[in-house]
Amino acid sequence: MIMNNPFLSFRFSLFLSLSLTASSSSALFFSKRSPSSPSTPTATPSDLFAVLASKPQSLAVNPIVAQDLKSCFKFLVPFSPNSVKLDPTLRSPRRLLGLTKSASRSQREEDELIWWPPEPVLELARLAIDSGGDPAAIQRALDPTIIPCVLDSGYKICGTIIVPDIEGSKECRCELTRTPYGRHFVSEELNQYIKFLFDLIVARGPSVGLNVTLNRFDLFHGHLFLAVDSGRLGILFHAKEYPEYDEEVFPYNMGFCQTGSKLKYDDSMNLRNILWLAPLPHNSTKSWEAPGVLVVLDARPDGIIYRDLIPDYVSIARTIYEDDLGVVAVDVNYLNLGSEPPHYQLFIC
């Protein structure tokens, strides 16, 4: 979730909102989870990452936990680490061309862009490991300069970019980003790759039951982090960010940014956490242990992700918090600067 006010913890504000509403809410929203048996193993973020890594790492996870986690994975790109050759130099030359021209890419080429991204992404993934999971190493890859603005279809594009009004957000006193300005990576290919991830989630989401739209109430942001224990580079995307207030279905006030939302709260909230993991470098050689991953994490109430990885106080929102997965380096925001036709721009905060 995002903070409407940078000085107010969203976790606290959401918890307060849910608490104040609890007395008038139905048992559906505040039914207690069934306590786990003392003998039931619990899943951790490290287990999640291990199951999505190499086969030896996956086999090290408790088999019951591994099986339950796999039952909650809805892959947007096929996941078969043993069948994907662990050599990024073998990737199709054509898939490296025209990263933003999705109409010219086949499904296989899009899959390969997840398994083996362009070289700047691989370099960032290795930097995350080599730095020992230091977020400052990722932040140093951002463009530090304020460069002269140039016009791109009537919109100002700068090294450091002031976040403008997004779909009427300013009128509602809604601040969508952590900071009032955004930045880009020095590598333009990195910036284009992040945009590609947003677009691919929208395009492939319906195949697993996730229908999302790129707008300020639904999918517009992700959190780039370095995973606990391994330092693996990842982005946790949050869709369904601000559902519409509804006294019967979703009687929760989420602040200024919820104002004007027409996003219905329904079972698709179970699918709001989408995880991208970069290919996993070996920590002592130049080889690679696992290809990249793009997966929806199903937080249905009878699943292990809901039980073990969703905090109790936001179970209604089905939110996995990025801080629980690792150390956050930056937020990536993909925002619509125009109306018709939409004009999306990346803001890294």
Rank of each mutant, 00 (worst) to 15 (best):
Ile316Ala: 14
Ile316Asp: 02
Ile316Arg: 09
Ile316Leu: 11
Ala317Val: 01
Ala317Arg: 12
Ala317Cys: 08
Ala317Tyr: 04
Arg318Gln: 00
Arg318Ser: 01
Arg318Leu: 04
Thr319Asp: 15
Thr319Val: 12
Thr319Cys: 15
Ile320Cys: 03
Ile320Asp: 04
Ile320Glu: 00
Ile320Leu: 15
Ile320Ser: 06
Ile320Tyr: 09
Tyr321Cys: 03
Tyr321Arg: 09
Tyr321Gln: 03
Tyr321Phe: 03
Tyr321Trp: 05
Tyr321Glu: 02
Tyr321Met: 11
Tyr321Pro: 03
Glu322Arg: 06
Glu322Met: 03
Glu322Thr: 13
Glu322Ile: 05
Asp323Met: 13
Asp323Cys: 07
Asp323Ser: 15
Asp324Met: 06
Asp324Gln: 11
Asp324Phe: 09
Asp324Arg: 04
Asp324Ser: 12
Leu325Pro: 02
Leu325Ser: 07
Leu325Gly: 05
Leu325His: 14
Gly326Thr: 02
Gly326Asp: 03
Val327Met: 07
Val327Cys: 02
Val328Leu: 11
Val328Thr: 15
Val328Asn: 10
Val328Ile: 11
Ala329Asp: 01
Ala329Ser: 14
Ala329Met: 02
Ala329Gly: 05
Ala329Lys: 04
Ala329Gln: 03
Ala329Val: 10
Val330Tyr: 01
Val330Lys: 03
Val330Ile: 14
Asp331Met: 07
Asp331Glu: 13
Val332Tyr: 10
Val332Ile: 12
Val332Met: 10
Val332Asp: 07
Asn333Ala: 07
Asn333Phe: 06
Asn333Trp: 00
Asn333Thr: 10
Asn333Gln: 13
Asn333Asp: 15
Tyr334Ile: 05
Tyr334Pro: 00
Tyr334Val: 08
Tyr334Leu: 09
Tyr334Asp: 06
Tyr334Thr: 06
Tyr334His: 10
Leu335Thr: 12
Leu335Lys: 12
Leu335Ala: 09
Leu335Trp: 02
Leu335Ser: 09
Asn336Arg: 12
Asn336Asp: 09
Asn336Val: 01
Asn336His: 14
Asn336Gly: 11
Asn336Ser: 13
Asn336Leu: 07
Leu337Gln: 02
Leu337Cys: 04
Leu337Ile: 05
Leu337His: 15
Gly338Tyr: 07
Gly338Arg: 01
Gly338Val: 01
Ser339His: 11
Ser339Leu: 08
Ser339Asp: 13
Glu340Pro: 06
Glu340Lys: 10
Pro341Trp: 00
Pro342Gln: 09
Pro342His: 08
Pro342Val: 01
Pro342Leu: 07
Pro342Asp: 04
His343Tyr: 10
His343Cys: 04
His343Ile: 04
His343Arg: 05
His343Met: 00
Tyr344Ser: 07
Tyr344Ala: 04
Tyr344His: 15
Tyr344Gln: 03
Tyr344Cys: 03
Tyr344Asn: 00
Tyr344Leu: 03
Tyr344Val: 08
Gln345Ala: 15
Gln345Phe: 15
Gln345Cys: 03
Gln345Ile: 09
Gln345His: 12
Leu346Ile: 14
Leu346Lys: 06
Leu346Gln: 07
Leu346Thr: 04
Leu346Glu: 00
Leu346Pro: 00
Leu346Cys: 13
Phe347Glu: 02
Phe347Asp: 10
